[in-house]
Amino acid sequence: MCLGIPGRVVEKHEQEGLLMGVVDFGGVRRTACLAYLPEIEIGEYTIIHAGFGISRLDEDEARQTLELLAELGEAEALAQVDVNDRGEVVSPAVGAEGRQAGV
C-alpha cells in the first residue's frame, strides 16, 4: 500500500492549480502530482506514492549510502565469507523485485 517508487522528474506543468509533472521510472513515464515538492527541479529524483511525489530524493545521502555499500561489497569479496552456512539463502534471489513497497 505504501508502495513508493523512485523516479526522475522530466517535465513540470500546472493543472487545475496543482503542480504536476511527468516522472520517468527507468523508461516508463507517468504523470504525478508534485504539489508537495514545490522546490523540485527537472532532473531530480522523487519517491512517488499513489500518484504523488512525497520526497525530493537527497542524492548526496544516496551517494554516501552507495559508497558504504560498495565498501561492504569489497569487504565481502576479500573475506570470501560463506555466511550461508545453513545453505538456505541463494544470493541471486536478492533484488529480483522491481518495486519498493512499504507503509
Partner: peptide
C-alpha cells in the same frame, strides 16, 4: 532502475549480515 538495483547488491547484503552476526 536507478535508486533500486544499487540497494540490492548481494555482496553488500552478505557483508551486512556478517556484521550483524558479529
Amino acid at each position: 532502475m536507478k535508486y533500486l538495483e544499487e540497494f540490492r547488491d548481494p555482496k553488500a547484503v552478505r557483508e551486512l549480515a556478517v556484521r550483524i552476526a558479529a
